[in-house]
Design a protein around this nucleic acid. Structure first.
Lengths: 144, 144
DNA sequence: GAATATTAGTTGAAAATGTAACTAACAAGC
DNA sequence: GCTTGTTAGTTACATTTTCAACTAATATTC
């Protein structure tokens, strides 16, 4: 019979990952929420479109690891904010290309600047080498 | 004017943390959900009570970094599963001590074993030194 | 080329979460 | 000892998320 009072949840990787992820996302969430009234999925959509150009909703699902219903709703929301527009694909009218409007691009640029600063602030306490290692480890875990 | 098309969301710490946290929690979530029908908060409550003994709801909030409404609902849920019981504190009837029932303890022990295995599996690709570094970095980020 | 299957995306209902207002018990000030 | 303030925890309501069913367009099979 195993004796488990020695197992500390605070050493359990999914737990400390969840806590640090929550902690790290809080401050940035404030930003995109307060400035643009965006939700997490909307912010992610904006960044993927801003960085990787026109994509279909399907592409975004795959790249951003989001469920299609979440993406669908985020597209609608960003469309209403006039940040995203849809372009029909004549050869296959099932999908539509998503792209940022000039306004969307402006918001993206603004949030990029904020993200850069925020990232730097989060990593303040880490040496350059540690920063590289940390991100490398996380990417391995995320299979990124 | 900054040019932001060079900013890759996949190097943004909150993003890669969120992705790796999601990825890492998926498998374990399957376990406690399938075996015991528990939610994330319920699992956390179980582990905190199992490891740190009797606590008030307030204590759990602080230790597990959960909002009191979440804890309140998790306590009710685990009480209905007969995993947790409440004991009134005569000196101050505002709080009540939470503790695991024998059944709750059994579930805790079972999930501890599963968690140990799962943790090991997640970290398979990391050398012992990397494992230590990773967890250390994450704890720093989470202010744990 | 009509019937069936697949794919892209949307919608609706149920579950879960977050926020704020609430109750009950205790504490402090006067 | 009664008003006011604080603390522990619950409840109600709005927002988000999840899951499954749905529509519309294309592909496949016979």
């Amino acid at each position: 019979m195993t004796h488990n009072s020695d197992f500390d949840i605070r050493d359990f990787l999914p737990y400390i990952l969840a806590l640090s992820a929550e902690e790290a996302s809080l401050g940035f969430q404030q930003l995109y929420k307060d400035r643009y009234g965006m939700l997490r999925t909307e912010w992610r959509l904006l960044f993927h479109l801003g960085r990787y150009g026109d994509l279909t909703a399907k592409d975004v699902c795959a790249r951003a690891r989001l469920h299609k219903t979440k993406v669908s709703r985020a597209v609608t929301a960003l469309e209403q904010k006039r940040f995203v527009k849809r372009t029909e694909v004549p050869t296959d009218r099932r999908h539509e290309l998503l792209s940022l409007t000039p306004q969307g691009t402006k918001a993206f640029e603004d949030l990029c600047d904020a993200a850069k600063l925020y990232d730097r602030k989060l990593l303040e306490g880490f040496s350059p080498q540690e920063q590289t290692l940390l991100k490398d480890y996380l990417k391995r875990l995320a299979r990124l």
